[in-house]
Design a protein around this nucleic acid. Structure first.
Lengths: 199, 199
DNA sequence: GTCTATACCCCGATAGAC
DNA sequence: GTCTATCGGGGTATAGAC
């Protein structure tokens, strides 16, 4: 199980360092206004040093940052259905309170990417739709089991849940003292016949 | 009631043109990534021509754009209290559906301005807090009149209302077909003993 | 009021030495 | 793997002519 040695290992570590630096720099000033040079400065190497590790330049850096986060986050919900899935949303919210930089990064990039010319435009639009569909599906499963309050439409409930989640995140970033996880749990409970278990 | 003539009038018109161009350019690419040059190109004059009218440079342009919008929006709520104020929130949401560019501008700037070094940082943080306080006050007035459902705290209700408003705006910008005004009205009604009048 | 010209800075990318 | 040097482009801002 020994990892790569010598030059290879050094390269992998550099890549990781660069990725982390890119993440914090993008989070602070967004994609367009950030520079490879500044990322390099954070790492402590030259601009060309960074480009050596990411041949595709700045867009490649962005893509790598996004992929890294997705890989870490997606399995938190995979395989969960109905009420379990909804409970997973609460868990994710709770975890985000410790990742301010990452949340900020996503918020800023998502806003920038509204422009169709932005390199991450496609990424965000499909990602958002995928999430909305997954939440809709979860509500549908809850409804089939008789756990959804009467008169509620799964799709509408999903969009409102998403809106509340994103909105609370926004307020939290703005510096308001909101209990994201608690508020989302309350909001979900308002849709269900039986409340979710609290963690 | 005749306006200014001759040179003065020409100047005022130019300023208005520049402001409008700045608004659309900022909305498309954000503040940091926009250039005075591009704004000038949209207007059809040179870069120095723009700077002639806005001595403070790019930051002055940004400030002017923000002030212009506030001036137009604030009186929509001034003098209204309690239920009337809440109904005003719904009206504002309805109006925003026709102002995609402006909404986009605010969303992007607010995200950028999370950075304390951003020229609009202070503006957004005080603005957001002012809105939150105003909504809290409105809920308090409703509560005093016995119109708030029992067990609800005005401040918490206000923050959740704000979160829902912002979140719906976000989803709408992302391309989802959401009825912002209708959903907000529903959300408000869930807090009140009597539903608001629908427009 | 608007222009051209210009000074000076930072950007991303490439070539080539070590 | 990392560097310096360099190219071409674009940014803000100022000086001064018309």
């Amino acid at each position: 199980m020994a990892g790569p040695r010598g030059e290879y290992r050094k390269s992998a570590e550099r890549r990781a360092q660069i990725l982390e630096a890119a993440s914090t720099v993008f989070a602070r000033t967004g994609y367009s206004a950030s520079s490879v040079n500044e990322i390099a400065r954070v790492v402590g190497i030259s601009q060309t040093g960074v480009l050596h590790h990411f041949a595709g330049g700045k867009p490649a850096l962005l893509q790598a940052v996004l992929e890294q986060r997705d890989a870490r986050a997606e399995d938190r919900l995979s395989g969960r259905h109905g009420r379990e899935f909804l409970a997973g949303l609460v868990a994710i919210s709770r975890a985000q309170a410790d990742q301010r930089g990452l949340v900020q990064l996503y918020r800023l990039l998502a806003a920038e990417a509204t422009d169709p010319a932005h390199p991450a435009h496609e990424y965000f639009s499909t990602r958002f739709r995928r999430i909305a569909d997954a939440v809709t599906q979860a509500y549908r499963e809850v409804a089939d089991a008789g756990g959804l309050r009467p008169g509620l439409d799964p799709r509408t409930a999903a969009l409102r849940t998403l809106a509340m989640t994103e909105g609370l995140e926004l307020l939290w970033l703005q510096g308001f003292e909101v209990d994201m996880a608690g508020d989302i749990a309350d909001f979900l409970d308002a849709h269900l016949t039986d409340p979710l278990a609290r963690g």
